[in-house]
């Protein structure tokens, strides 16, 4: 369970308040207008954006000041999720050990993760020679080997076409179900919410609201959300 307690993020004139809890094994969609602070919220979870006030707790342990890599989560950014000079296998291997000194068991683990996302034949290729969908799969293979209890997606599939994006979302859905992780994903598309999310965190007017059940919320949105959905 991840809890953001009385959190406040201030960056110049921008501010975002959040007081919310992420339950295990659930999938959350973060929606809201551009510039409302969806990415900032994920950045705060991950340790890239400092909390001006408040605390971040993981299983009652304070991780407010923990280094990004020491947090129980893995994040996919909008871009630059892979090192272009390393092979797919090495990129995934970094999720197992940052020094890439993999034992044979760990190598097997990387290989089976690549097989799981359908990239078994691409292990020695560099990201630049892969398609956008394959690059996403490689990044997801790394998420798989990291096996963290929380998976954060900051629109990593935004550049993909609708069919491919749905394919990726289904793959993410399957992967987090297999690993038992919670998922927090930023999205602009209401159909993504329907497709994958149990709960919705609506971010607007300087506040990230507490999660609400997705179906009920989308069927009967409050006025601000209705204005956003159009």
């Amino acid at each position: 369970m991840l809890t953001l307690e009385q959190g406040l993020i201030r960056q110049g004139s921008f501010s975002l308040a959040a007081n919310l809890t992420i339950e295990p094994h659930k999938k959350y969609a973060v929606i809201g207008p551009s510039g409302a602070g969806k990415s900032t919220l994920l950045g705060a979870f991950c340790g890239f954006v400092p909390l001006t006030q408040g605390k971040l707790l993981w299983q009652a342990r304070d991780i407010t000041h923990a280094a990004p890599g020491a947090r129980p989560m893995t994040m996919l950014f909008q871009d630059n999720n892979l090192f272009p000079h390393l092979s797919v296998q090495q990129n995934v291997g970094l999720g197992v050990r940052p020094d890439l000194r993999l034992s044979s068991d760990e190598k097997t683990q990387v290989e089976s993760a690549l097989a799981r996302v359908g990239l078994a034949d691409m292990a020695d290729r560099k990201p630049g020679s892969l398609s956008g969908g394959q690059q996403s799969r490689a990044a997801l293979a790394r998420v798989l080997v990291q096996a963290r209890p929380l998976v954060l997606l900051d629109e990593p599939f935004a550049a993909l076409g609708p069919a491919l994006r749905n394919e990726m979302l289904d793959l993410v859905d399957a992967l987090v179900t297999e690993t038992g992780a919670s998922l927090i994903m930023v999205t602009h598309a209401p159909e993504d919410v329907e497709r994958i999310a149990d709960e919705v965190i609506f971010v607007a007017s300087g506040t990230a609201m507490a999660p609400q059940p997705a179906r009920a919320l989308m069927e009967n949105p409050p006025s601000e959300l209705r204005a956003y959905l159009g």
Binding site: G47, F48, P68, G69, T74, M75, F77, N80, L94, P98
Partner: peptide, 8 residues
Amino acid sequence: RLSQALSL
């Protein structure tokens, strides 16, 4: 950012 996320 990616390196930090991976504890590199």
